[in-house]
Computed example of a mutant assay.
Amino acid sequence: MEWTTLVSTMLGAVIGVGSTLLADRLRWRRDAGERDRELLRSSYVQFLEALTQARDVISQASRASNPTQLEQVQSALLEHGVHVKQYQLELLAPSHVVSKARDAGYKLALYRDVVVAGARRDDPECADARRAFRAAREELMEAMRLAVVRA
């Protein structure tokens, strides 16, 4: 057997194996990136869901003066896991999203505190707290959208 045939066969095998390994590596990176994006997206959704559920309890109580509802308002953030889901988000999200998430959680706590203090939906301080939370949540959602696109 001629040595050029042997060399060309070996070179073809090396090129074939190398291209297969490269394609597998690229596919693995793409799949890992998609899994990371999905995990991030899931964390965002869970946090927004917790914020919304807690906000609903607070908003409901701001319309009524039922003492039982005020007790629910005091524990709304805890009951719906706002802080736990915020901590999960902080492990995965970029820093600009984390700061917006903290701000939204803080504004929701302020809204809760205003309602617990006795303010009702039509009171200026309650309306201001509600609007501040809504604005913080909208900023958070925009930061989340951008982060998911970039991820």
Rank of each mutant, 00 (worst) to 15 (best):
M1K: 06
M1N: 06
E2G: 13
E2N: 13
W3G: 09
T4A: 11
V7Y: 09
S8M: 02
T9P: 00
L11D: 02
L11P: 06
G12F: 07
V14C: 04
V14I: 12
G16P: 03
G16S: 10
V17D: 11
G18H: 01
T20C: 12
L22M: 14
R27L: 15
R27V: 10
R29A: 09
R29P: 05
R30Q: 06
A32Q: 05
G33S: 08
E34V: 09
R37I: 09
R41S: 03
S42C: 05
S42D: 09
V45I: 09
E49M: 12
T52L: 05
Q53E: 13
A54E: 06
A54F: 01
S62N: 07
R63H: 08
S65F: 09
T68M: 11
Q69T: 01
Q69P: 03
L70T: 13
Q72P: 08
A76D: 07
L77E: 01
L77A: 15
L78Y: 15
L78T: 13
E79C: 05
H80A: 09
H80E: 11
G81D: 15
H83S: 15
H83C: 04
Q86L: 14
Q86E: 11
Y87G: 11
Q88N: 14
L92W: 10
A93H: 10
A104N: 09
A104C: 13
A104F: 10
K107G: 03
L108Q: 00
L110N: 01
V114G: 05
V114N: 01
V115I: 02
V116Q: 03
A117Q: 12
D122S: 03
D122L: 01
E125L: 08
D128T: 09
A129V: 04
R130Q: 09
R131L: 10
R131Y: 10
R131I: 09
A135H: 11
A135K: 15
R137C: 00
R137I: 01
E138T: 03
L140M: 02
M141P: 00
A143W: 07
A143S: 03
M144F: 04
L146R: 07
L146D: 00
R150G: 11
R150M: 00
A151S: 15
